[in-house]
Amino acid sequence: MIVSVENVIFLYGERPALAGVSFEVRENEIFGVLGPNGGGKSTLFKILATMLPPRSGSARIAGFDVDRQSSEVRRRIGVVFQSQSLDRKLTVAENLRAQGQLFGLRGHKLTCRGNEVLERLGLATRRDDLVDSLSGGLRRRVEIAKGLLHEPSVLLMDEPSTGLDPGARRELWAYIEELRRSQGVTVLLTTHILDEADRCDRILLVHNGKVVTEGAPSELKARIGGDVVVLEVAGDPAVVREEILRRFGASATLVNGSLRVEIGNGHRFIAEVVEAFPGVVQSVALHKPTLEDVFLDETGVRLE
């Protein structure tokens, strides 16, 4: 296991940000940590990036302890921050050179590696542009180039898609998948975006500092099975819920004023439920289970 986290606890003052988190990441995997903001993702990221020591428990990357052997870990991880870690007053090439030198690269080797990552991320023509003049999507790419410069075996990314438009987001993911394929890099990212989580090989759901569940997105969704039907009803939804349970044997949950039913055959249920409550059902929606449903199912609260 290239990343292994065992029972990590972290407190901000008295408040537990992580209350005993454990998981493992396999080599060459794209692994996502999914959860609402404030659920402990960022703290976990900081611990893995050697920025914070865990209060107790241990986290190891490539066999090295992130707290006690931070400098070994730092050589092996590339860190892509959510906030800008670029110097905006410097050019792309200057930012990369500074980063390389911090990792002990110099001379010919530094130039070669710099050109290589710029080429790979499609930034070759931007090398002499000031970071200030780049779009958000390009800046994120420079961040990634910076993180890859010293050939890390694990790339840690904090909310990589946040703040990017859909086009830039698609491009970013094409790069991430390409990297994994051609470089054998393991990618560990945090996200609160369902789309992004869906693209990971495996995800870890985190809520209130605890692991809710983990697995491949398809596998997690398959656990729910069937369809999800969301009903908006006139009058007291609790009464309608009772009725649905009595007549259809289906248990509905009340989420933000609407009723949510997980059921094998959604089409038939919709026809029957509309028939059964004339004038009460205001709107009906049917969808295949998403990770949002998985999260809702496990925690009882919405993800976003």
Binding site: A49, T50, M51, S71, R74, R75, I77, V79, F81, S83, Q84, S85, L86, D87, Q99, L102, F103, G104, K146
Partner: peptide, 12 residues
Amino acid sequence: EGFLLSMLVSPA
């Protein structure tokens, strides 16, 4: 935010 973060997670 910014440059210092990446300095602090480098092995320098």
